[in-house]
Write a protein that binds this DNA or RNA. Structure first.
Lengths: 628, 628
DNA sequence: GCCGACACGTGAGAC
DNA sequence: TGTCTCACGTGTCGG
């Protein structure tokens, strides 16, 4: 595949600034999380050279785009989700798989703004504000008005969302982990359900006012949604997730309703159950230990493939090796060094190893400003550091964690553009101090960042446009244009179809209502169908299901109303459960259809109860989206 | 509005070349008009300063995008349109309004390829080929293999489309003009209807095999569609036009069916009725006379607004004034000068006055290669020249007309990159011949064109993405991304709604079908569904299907391999066909599954053959992955 | 060696 | 004033 690589960066920092500002300052609604909020993500692999190869698969999650998708998912959903988080999976050097913060979008609770604080005490509130204030002060200098921040209340869910950034789940731990390992969505609705969960995080969510939490595995991670409202499972959400997060691999079309217990086939996978959540808070963060073993600093040991662009990276590493060391060394300072108040984030600090070359005058460590990169060869695997202080609800360690690279960037920036007092360690190496004039050098940097930003956008676009033929920028744009046109077209067609159907329906309704005989039945049917429109699958009352499992064979007998093609539903269900129909017979008596099927279990073995539950949930669901 | 201006260019010429090639050469199907075909357009105003202001309204039609939209409109339409043309409106200095060629997309007649020539005589065919050959020779050098062009037949509609490029309509003349003036769509269906039209063009269309012609006013012009098939009016098309050509102003939502006569409120508007069409063919084209009075050459007389960017234009004009003159002077040569054989079109010749500055080394007249610009301050209003030879079906005047700026571009190009024999007039002004070395100069030019192309794409993207906030490139990209996501979302929602409605409808139909009176609607619906079903037709070999229809009941027997859940497929198929299962039985013998089903037909009545085809296509389809 | 695509540094306009 | 965006010419890489 000879495609051009676009550097995969996360975000441009002007949006960062707005995020911080939006969250901190009082004149913005603190409940509306700006679209670009994010925090360091976990990377997909600790070895950057491996990640480089991965980055050439064009389906990689890219942060910006991720944010957009989360945004779209939440805002266009019928249900009122409070937040969405994408937990990004990664493989540690130890071989463990881990889910860490990928990106998140916080919408907030709509009607809670007035009677804001329901559960949290004033002390807790003070604590939160304090943390945020410290965080804010760390990033102060972003805007002049940042000092008067955090006088706004911090809602429970807001806080829950915030601290989520620090969490991670190893090897199937917790709700996201379970969903990921089982490759099956988990839907917890109802406070009791949440409260009784085995997942500490879920219980905490319940404490913070959540009533619904959902985890949907999707591609390289897990999508988590939470709501303070009670939201029942619907295929609608699944469809949306499939559309927005279609990573070609995972099929989430049909899924039995599951609790977070059960259905995890191999219990041994859950190794370190909740150990993360029980890690001590306030643990000092020493990134030094963690970043050291990362191969990134040892280019000679990671010559896996002779990828030409990889040579760039290595070359880049050679040049910047020492800077990395110093950065990592200084890294533990963040959040504890009160001198960093004066640090300033310049817009557009972007981690930029994805770019191929730099000319000699610019061996800059252009770090990603807001989030650790989760998707490019440049990512530094700070994630291993993120694991440690997870679930830190107090002290600035937790919150500050999300800002580490930001701070790093600001450190670098302060070196390059401002004259900072001498440090113990030779921090200043990042930039050649003298290159003649100083002003154009900054300009150069700014321009570089602008280019970077643009490229970032390009890559994001690349991710949402299917079938981009030539990886070429121009072709990409052209394809995007045609794609948009096609989408408009399809949408238009779909909606005119919808209209036609609706009118057809209306006329039919008019007819049907004239019939005296059916007038009793029609309203019910309509009702039921309207529910279908709302995508809530409720059981029709008069369905009885009998399942008998005998060894590898099973017998299923269902009696139900003949409407809505129960035979099709049952057969599709069996197909999805991977049950091979051995014999089947359906008969209709008046309005009742009786189906009797014998199946052979294929690769999967279900218990009688599992089978019964799966079939009954699936079959009584009016609408299955499995076929299309 | 403080937005950055993107240069509004029409097309990049590599696509041009492919267009010419695709149309000319024999190894490409000549019926498939490449997506980038186009021809000189009329401008929206003769005064460039006015146009400049217009160009800052972001809704301006841009050629490339126009082409895309036409493409989309045709290809995604249910009906089988043969071509689509957008007639761009413009205001002459005389105050007259005029519709001229904006852009066109030719799809062709699908099944006519074999028995291609139906009406045109061999002489006519020769004539067409000759014209095309001359045209081809004019542009020869584009590709090495361009010499053996035009041995393919030129179909009637192809020719009709081609000569349309030369036509224009003043003040409500002709079908497009009437539609434009009346702001109402005109739909002519049926040969008689066309033949009896007052519009010469329409009658000619009928002669060339069209059965349907439609003109829909849209924004700054009129969209014309034609088809060799009989297509009855539908709101579907109108909707599509509204979506694709939504210029915010014109509402074409509901409209009475109208002929081309009548409904023009002010008959006086139709001033020069058909005078254009009756202009003598073969009239020599003297652009000199026409281009002279155009204000464009007289910047001092057009100081309407003190737009800063306008200063650029004027400055630009000052610099290039003389070139324009020479160009226009030389213009009449095109198509008659056999010496121009050796001219070459290099890719990416773009009319480029929209760009603000050029450094001193590049006072180039970068002309638009294929089409005259219809939308930017740089447009030359060649349209006034185009009027004259309109409806010229013979002589190369008609066809060559569409290539004038192309030729101009090639002239310029030949000057810049190749050493051409000395011309009578000082053509060479376009480029400073010496700037030191020669090789990097070409590189510079290439790079410039590449940038131009990119900008062009950007602008096109800008046109299809609504609500682009900041005109900034990066923001544009970001907005495009969110827009795509939103579209996907909406589409998904719409389709699930559609599905829900459909099922609702199905269930209701089940009820209503008991009323015998309402089977009149069925055939159309059925047809539609069968088309959908016939979309894919790969049958697996060892499936045998037996269908017997007896009145309202039908019996289906299928024997096939038990793999891939044939029962589920059959049941889903029956569900989709709205067949109510009365009884079914499936049994497996070794690898063979035998299914036997009796169904009752609901609202739809199928013939035995219909049912058999529908079921077999559907059931033998392994997986229907309609989306993506 | 030519061509296309890209990133880069740079000067300049806009706010 | 700085900040941001842009177009331009150039060096360079890969096909």
């Amino acid at each position: 595949m000879t495609e051009y690589r676009y550097p995969l960066m996360d975000l441009w920092t002007d949006d960062n600034a707005s995020m911080v500002e939006g969250f901190m300052s009082s004149n913005h609604s603190p409940l509306t999380w700006p679209p670009s909020s994010s925090a360091p993500a976990t990377n997909t692999a600790a070895d950057p050279t491996k990640t480089l190869n991965q980055s050439q698969s064009s389906l990689l999650l890219n942060q910006e785009n991720l944010q957009q998708r989360l945004h779209t998912l939440i805002e266009f959903s019928r249900e009122n989700w409070t937040y969405a988080i994408f937990w990004q999976s990664s493989v540690q050097t130890s071989g463990d798989s881990m889910l860490g913060w990928g990106d998140g979008y916080y919408k907030g609770e709509e009607h809670k703004r007035i009677q804001k604080m329901t559960s949290s005490s004033a002390a807790e509130q003070d604590h939160r504000k304090k943390v945020l204030r410290e965080l804010s002060s760390l990033i102060s200098g972003v805007r002049a008005s940042a000092d008067d921040a955090v006088d706004e209340e911090v809602t429970d869910t807001e806080w829950f969302f915030l601290v989520s950034m620090t969490q991670s789940f190893i090897n199937g731990v917790g709700l996201p982990g379970q969903a990921f390992v089982a490759s099956a969505p988990l839907w917890l609705a109802g406070s009791e359900r949440l409260a009784s969960s085995s997942c500490e995080r879920v219980r905490q969510g319940q404490v913070f006012g959540l009533q619904t939490m959902v985890c949907v595995p999707s591609g390289s991670g897990v999508l988590e949604l939470g709501s303070t409202e009670l939201i029942l499972p619907s295929s609608d959400l699944m469809d949306k997730v499939r559309v927005l997060f279609n990573f070609s691999s995972i099929e989430i079309g049909s899924w039995p309703l599951q609790t977070d217990q059960g259905l995890i086939s191999d219990p041994s996978v859950v190794r370190i159950r909740e150990s993360v959540d029980r890690a001590p808070a306030n643990a000092p963060i020493n990134f030094q230990e963690i970043s050291k073993p990362i191969q990134f600093e040892n280019p000679s040991s990671s010559s896996l493939t002779e990828n030409p662009s990889r040579n760039y990276i290595q070359h880049q590493q050679q040049k910047e090796k020492q800077s990395f060391l110093t950065r990592d060394l200084n890294f533990s300072k963040f959040g504890f060094d009160s001198n960093s108040h004066s640090l300033k984030i310049e817009s557009g600090e972007i981690l930029n190893f994805g770019e191929s070359r730099r000319n000699s005058s610019s061996n800059i460590i252009s770090t990603n400003s807001q989030r650790g990169s989760s998707n490019e060869e440049g990512m530094l695997s700070f994630t291993s550091g993120v694991i440690l202080p997870s679930a830190v609800v107090k002290s600035n360690g937790g919150a500050g964690d999300s800002e580490n690279s930001d701070l790093e960037a600001s450190v670098r920036e302060s070196e390059s553009s401002r004259v900072v007092g001498p440090e113990k360690r030779p921090r200043k190496r990042g930039r050649k101090p003298a290159n003649g004039r100083e002003e154009p050098l900054n300009h150069v940097e700014a321009e570089r960042q602008r280019r970077e930003k643009l490229n970032q956008r390009f890559y994001s676009l690349r991710a949402v446009v299917p079938n981009v033929s030539k990886m070429d920028k121009a072709s990409l744009l052209a394809d995007a244009i045609t794609y948009i046109n096609e989408l408009n077209m399809k949408l238009q067609t779909a909606e005119s179809d919808k209209e036609a159907l609706q009118s057809q329906l209306d006329s039919l309704k008019g007819l049907a209502s004239k019939e005296s005989q059916y007038s009793g039945l029609v309203p019910r049917l309509l009702d039921q169908n309207l529910k279908v429109l709302n995508h809530h699958g409720n059981k029709s009352p008069e369905t009885d299901i009998e399942v008998k499992v005998m060894g590898l064979e099973a017998m299923i007998r269902i009696g139900c109303n003949k409407k809505n093609h129960p035979a099709a539903r049952l057969m599709v269900t069996l197909k999805e459960l991977d049950l091979e129909v051995h014999h089947a017979s359906m008969s209709v008596v008046k309005d009742l259809m009786i189906q009797q099927v014998t199946v052979k279990m294929g690769r999967r073995n279900y218990t009688q109860e599992q089978l019964r539950v799966a079939i009954s949930t699936k079959v009584t669901e009016p609408q299955s989206v499995s076929n299309r």
